[in-house]
Write a protein that binds this DNA or RNA. Structure first.
Lengths: 250, 250
DNA sequence: CGATTCATTGAGAGGCTTCAATCAGCGTGG
DNA sequence: CCACGCTGATTGAAGCCTCTCAATGAATCG
């Protein structure tokens, strides 16, 4: 999705080219690369949202710290993602590099100006925000109604899908983040994540290939994993009965 | 469904007035009123997002039904809220009336056109989406790290704040929705909500005034409730130490 | 007044967390 | 080169919170 992969020094320097661009990513194409080493912060929740960023390489986590000091990770960001479009002056969350990260920066002022002018760009921005909203909804569903096993399976499948989309279908995936990150993202403890992972291995659903801290995982039985994720649409076997709960629709 | 009753004939008929409007709400001002009785659906998750709605009176719940038939309520909508701006062709969730609801409808096509044209309206729409996003983030934090008591206190406080904003500061609030709705919104069961409510009464934090199914609640000790909500910013007493967790920022 | 719906309360069970110890990989320094 | 320490992951045991199942209570409506 949203290609525009690595436009290493395109020769185009014409400013009006912006108007021919079909992608939001083009806005960043003349910005210099920046690098973040693992663990470094990109911005904090309280910061003025002065810049917008395009991720070129690596993984970021976006999160909030709550009163008792715990951390809630609300999402991960990967290459081709754009971050910082949280409207309203201030970022809604902090962002840190999980791995080493390469990115480009654009001032919000220029980003907003470009989007305002272009009839091509505006729908793209809406689509982006829409995706973010949909992801937030999915996460709410996950957090409010799934158990540890379902959460982990959902996470593994989502990660697999994303990596398959960007680099061809595969049965193997890499988890750039550590167990603690996964735990904070799924609303679990690190121990539960670890135990559940072992349980999945025991069931033959997955296989842990990695030896280092950066884990690689093979999905042995994708279908089983999908069933265990708990958002199976297997309305095929049971009679169509849409309104079962919700009560007062008599 | 959606009997288009009571078109209360506002006197203003000037079409060009639209361009002077400063508010998104103005877009709806010439639309006829519609009514929903409690429990009736406004739209479903799978529907084409053909319309946008302005709530004038009453309460709506927006939710998704997951595979096992359970319901996850992702939000409630109140007067002056606008619903249906879920970009991307299809609604992200279903919407049902909690109470009797009065609203106005506008086609997405016209809504989008108006927003696209007006430099006044666009920032408003962004602000709206931004609020929705912030609310989703808060809900994720609530669901992934708060216990039953903290969730209920947060909910009561949020409800109090909203009602205080719309009708003067007060210590009393009304819960238009039933216990099952609250439970599905907070990711709990109806029994836990009930028990926690009783516990709060026992602590003297709140008081239940209502006798009917539609409950009225008095906040006896707002400060206590805020403490129990768990998003207390009491960094005032402890030394400023922003980076305690998150690990690898050595 | 009985039937229905919604809320409350109780008892038991289960899943996740907490606390704690062990294991594995990796870099550093002797 | 190996010992040591550090970090991150795994495993174990006990406890707590919430869910599940079940019964009762309260209010509305025919």
């Amino acid at each position: 999705m949203l290609s525009t992969t690595q436009n290493y020094e395109s020769g185009t320097t014409a400013l009006h080219a912006v108007h021919h661009q079909t992608s939001l990513h083009s806005l960043f194409c003349k910005q210099p690369f920046e690098h973040l080493t693992a663990g470094k912060a990109l911005f904090f929740e309280s910061d003025d949202a002065v810049d917008v960023f395009e991720i070129l390489e690596g993984t970021l986590r976006i999160f909030r710290i709550i009163a008792d000091g715990r951390r809630v990770i609300t999402g991960f960001l990967y290459p081709n993602d754009i971050v910082g479009i949280s409207l309203g002056g201030r970022y809604l969350y902090s962002a840190e590099a999980v791995t080493s990260v390469t990115l480009r920066r654009l001032s919000r002022r220029r980003f907003d100006a470009a989007v305002t002018e272009s009839d091509h760009l505006r729908p793209q921005l809406f689509a982006l925000v829409s995706d973010e909203m949909a992801a937030a909804q999915d996460q709410m569903v996950l957090l409010s109604s799934k158990n540890a096993e379902e959460r982990l399976c959902s996470f593994l499948l989502a990660t697999l899908r994303r990596q398959a989309a960007s680099s061809g279908n595969r049965t193997t995936l890499e988890l750039p983040m550590g167990r603690q990150d996964i735990a904070d993202y799924l609303g679990l403890t690190i121990e539960t994540v670890s135990r559940t992972m072992t349980k999945l291995v025991g069931k033959g659903a997955i296989q842990i290939d990695g030896v280092a801290a950066r884990n690689a995982i093979t999905i042995c039985r994708p279908v089983l994993l999908a069933q265990m994720a708990g958002d199976e649409d297997d309305r095929s076997r049971e009679p169509r009965l849409t309104i079962v709960r919700g009560g007062r629709s008599h």
